[in-house]
Amino acid sequence: ARFSTSLFYNTPFDETILEVLVCPVSKKPLRYDKEKNELVCEESGIAYPIVDGIPNLVPQDARIINKDTVDRNESPPKTQNK
């Protein structure tokens, strides 16, 4: 085949791409959370999942982080469709 689907496949996540990416809602920079494999927007308090190395930047799929709680591990399961 002339074209390939896997040659430059971005697994694992490559952080250099954050240079141009911002949160589509707040337009603020994103932070890569290695532990949870998420892109976090501190400004609007939402986290975008990364699936197989592909960031999912659709606002509807994002997880809302509870800003008030210090322990972010127990965030509410606000994601509707993973």
Binding site: E19, V20, L21, V22, C23, P24, V25, K27, P29, V51, I54, P55, N56, L57, V58, P59, Q60, D61
Partner: peptide, 11 residues
């Protein structure tokens, strides 16, 4: 990138 065309995530 999984992106909704109505919400562009670029600087």
């Amino acid at each position: 990138l999984i992106v909704d065309e109505e919400f562009l995530p670029f600087k």
